[in-house]
Design a protein around this nucleic acid. Structure first.
Lengths: 338, 338
DNA sequence: GGACCCATTGTTAACGTTCACAGTCTTCCC
DNA sequence: GGGAAGACTGTGAACGTTAACAATGGGTCC
């Protein structure tokens, strides 16, 4: 009778009975406790195998207070940058034996970040990575010390939380110096949205490089990372006199700029040189292939997990690290000597 | 003394004591049980507020057997398609009050998918969405009925699992018919990797449209979704005589094709018309702007969650649905009358 | 040969919630 | 006024694991 009924999942006690030991011994085998006779161990292992037992991680989390789950809060994971970073985070976390729970925000405002953090904290995550490159998000984070360890990616000034980021200033500098070294009088800039720290950093690097070379910095054109905004900036630039070099704050906008120039009959790189930022997979096949600054998103992801795990598993109180990943210059065909 | 010690998180019993009720009453308030006197309810709510109590979801999951967490298995979330789908899934899941745990596979092989599924099942997810457009993954899924409800996205033939997908065949047909309607004698095709069901579907649609028009189908060129592979296919096509229309299986490869044509002096759309697939945000700003087939990834994500939740929460045994999202044609400037 | 240590195992009690059931106190009806 | 049907609340036992401690047995050391 009742054989048709789905047999319920075996629990530790079932394994114990099958192997003729106590449930605690089963637990010890599972947790690789040293003091278990090897013969006992194999007997337990066989019982586990026979019954198809799988340990209930929820029950385990209840008593250990560790869920082995990490939370990730990110902004629009459709964009290449965030997507790649989250991907790197996920890979690194899984390699370390952690699950990853994701909250992807449509827009980043104070309450949005706060809710996401609460939401994840409720779930009992052991730590949180916040991929929140906007100033508002970064500030929220500073106030908001939840019970769990936090690492910010691109999170601005290291306040109360550890930060892992790419050196945006250096990237902006690299791009600008490259253009200056080709003999351009000055370099125009299509910047990202003012709320974004990354945008700020690139502007700062651009300004610094110009200042160092004793050149005046033209007014930067505002964009929002989208190809369309780049396109519009490109139309403006095409209509202006004396523009021979442009540093665009990301590759997508650079694509828009290239498109606008092409429409207006402005030849790249013959008349104007263009440098992008990110090195998305498409950049190499733009017309012309885009010279750009590469961000190692994978390294960012890996490092953020490393810092976070150190905070979670390490015993000593951490010193709120700030880990900076260097960008690199990628030469292609969109820039030329003046 | 001991005030410096971090006060431990309050639990239900603490709230109960504070409010002068039993822990069960607190539980009832939290779970919105109807039979609680409203005065009692406010007293409990005040106690919760005062103590800053937050319900322990792990303990709750242990007894209810529901974690309110959904698992997502995906292949390379760096690609636009998977990234957008996962984004849609995450949004829909959160709206429904579920957490999302992600496993992003580097490569999809049988063991990879199996491990991911086990991994998620161990964690106690209530259901799993598998974004696995490869044939091998889809087949693995069929064998592998774990204890939890599963929905496959782009999962091929609806076998034992429900499937949500975009009508790839229809997409291929739309692209091809558009080109034929412009007066092109035949349409060449740069296809995706043969292991991918999406690639197969697009090939099938392309073939069907050609057959219906009574045209011979040239041998398709093989690509791997990357711009580079499109570039190589483009070089081949540029060197061939009689190529006037090309349907490329995704926008990234189409970019490579456009690049190759541009290098070889082949004018698009004057000499050759090109149609892509996906409608990534960049496509509108390619040179020339790319005519393409749009996939509504957001709808796919939403639908997959809907189907999954129906399986989880609905009482009646589901009939292994197959939900097809139609693609749409987006006209731009990369195609022209012959 | 007795004390003691260590390896191995078992027993009992948490962890913080919900479920099942048993109360108590109204209210309402005949 | 007796009873029954609700509304509301409390008590005890799960859920499946790990932690703490106790117990057993064999060996070693002097």
């Amino acid at each position: 009778m009742g054989s048709s009924q789905a047999r319920r999942m075996p629990v530790m006690a079932d394994v114990a009975r099958e192997a003729g030991v106590s449930h605690q011994t089963v637990s010890r085998v599972l947790n690789e406790h040293p003091n278990v006779r090897s013969e006992t161990r194999t007997r337990v292992l066989e019982a586990i195998d026979k019954l198809g037992y799988r340990r209930n991680l929820v029950a385990r989390a209840l008593v250990t207070k560790h869920s082995r789950t990490l939370g990730v809060v990110s902004f629009d994971t459709t964009l290449y940058g965030p997507a790649s970073t989250v991907y790197g985070i996920e890979q690194a976390a899984r390699a370390a034996g952690y699950f990853v729970s994701i909250v992807s925000l449509k827009s980043i405002d104070r309450t949005g970040v706060r809710d996401a953090l609460d939401y994840l904290a409720d779930q009992g995550v052991d730590g949180i990575v916040v991929v929140a490159p906007q100033r508002s998000a970064a500030q929220t984070l500073a106030d908001l010390a939840p019970g769990v360890p936090i690492v910010a990616v691109e999170g601005g000034e290291a306040g109360d939380v550890s930060v892992v980021c790419v050196d945006q200033v250096e990237g902006g500098r690299l791009a600008t110096e490259h253009l200056l070294s080709l003999g351009h009088e000055t370099v125009w800039h299509v910047r990202g949205p003012s709320d974004w720290l990354e945008a700020e950093g690139r502007v700062a690097g651009w300004r610094a490089a110009l200042a160092q070379a004793g050149r005046a910095a033209p007014e930067p054109l505002a964009g929002d990372w989208s190809p369309r905004s780049g396109y519009e900036a490109g139309r403006s630039l095409a209509s202006m006199a004396g523009v021979s070099a442009v540093f665009v704050a990301n590759d997508q906008m650079a694509l828009g700029v290239l498109r606008a120039f092409s429409e207006q009959g402005v030849k790249v790189p013959d008349q104007v040189s263009v440098v992008g930022f990110d090195d998305i997979p498409e950049s190499e096949f733009f017309s012309p292939p885009l010279t750009t600054i590469r961000q190692d998103f994978d390294a960012v992801g890996r490092n953020s997990i490393e810092v976070l795990l150190q905070q979670i598993e390490g015993e000593e109180q951490r010193a709120c690290e700030r880990l900076v990943v260097p960008p690199s210059f990628v030469a292609r065909a969109s820039t030329a000597r003046v």
